[in-house]
């Protein structure tokens, strides 16, 4: 079997079928759609002006490098990554995770071989893809929510009705797995995640071929590692799963 299956060829057949879906009824863009777009633009303009009149954009004191804001929060859409800093070292939370997310998002159309459910909302036709994507999307939103609403001074957990005046002390006794145990359990996790589905559901593996299968399962293994590491930290106080002289995971 060739090691590298040319990826984009997974479903050339329905390509031209999808190009022109002549079945559905056509509408003239002018005036109906153009009018709807115009109304949307008017509505949004009103919303934006009202919002701008009701709430001022924040402007604190002038920047002062010597005095950190407490807490210093990243813009809300990056607060999820900042929240991950609690559980991962900066090179993972700030560099590897976003890079891997972007790469995986870009790979989606090339690894999804399921030609069904194109152009329609359908859960039953593409359960695998939808479940995993929604899981990732919700995880992103959850991290945003926790980082934005539930983190107070010193990045401690404050519920929305708790006062930030109350100082919370950090009492943590974190420990890390023994390097050998960590390495073995990490490799075992990856191996199980990648090999097991291929053994149990041969069909699942065959349909994708080795390259596509490997990309899909490795991405998913990495994605599900994030909540697992968070659980390990919250439940068992584990700081690092893998400790090496060069980096810690």
């Amino acid at each position: 079997m060739p090691l590298f299956v040319p990826l984009p060829l997974c479903s050339l057949v329905p390509l031209y079928k999808t190009m022109y879906h002549s079945k559905s009824k056509k509408h003239l863009v002018w005036p109906d759609l153009a009018f709807m777009e115009f109304l949307t633009a008017v509505a949004l303009t009103i919303i934006l002006i009202a919002w701008a009149l009701l709430a001022n954009a924040p402007l604190l004191e002038i920047a002062s490098p010597a005095r950190s804001e407490n807490p210093s929060k990243a813009p809300w859409y990056f607060v999820g990554l900042q929240e991950l800093l609690v559980y991962f070292d900066p090179w993972i939370a700030g560099v590897m995770i976003p890079s891997i997310i972007v790469f995986c998002l870009m790979m989606i159309p090339y690894v999804d071989c399921n030609s069904k459910g194109s152009g329609e909302y359908s859960f039953s036709l593409r359960k695998f893809a939808v479940i995993n994507f929604i899981f990732g999307f919700l995880m992103w939103l959850t991290l945003l929510f926790v980082g934005f609403f539930l983190r107070g001074p010193s990045w401690q957990l404050y519920l929305p009705w708790e006062s930030w005046e109350k100082v919370k002390d950090i009492e943590e006794n974190l420990w890390s797995l023994n390097p050998a145990v960590g390495l073995i359990s990490l490799l075992a996790y990856l191996a199980l995640f990648i090999i097991l589905p291929a053994v149990i559901k041969k069909d699942f593996y065959k349909r994708r071929g080795i390259a596509r299968y490997a990309i899909v399962m490795l991405s998913l293994a990495l994605m599900y590692f994030v909540p697992m590491k968070i659980l390990l930290r919250l439940v068992f106080n584990i700081k690092y799963v893998l400790v090496t002289p060069w980096f810690n995971v």
Partner: peptide, 22 residues
Amino acid sequence: THLGCTPNWFPDEGVFKCPCHG
């Protein structure tokens, strides 16, 4: 040494605390 915020010195407790991630 975590992410480069400026910690604060609390003389009564004798502790440097970083406001960013505690």
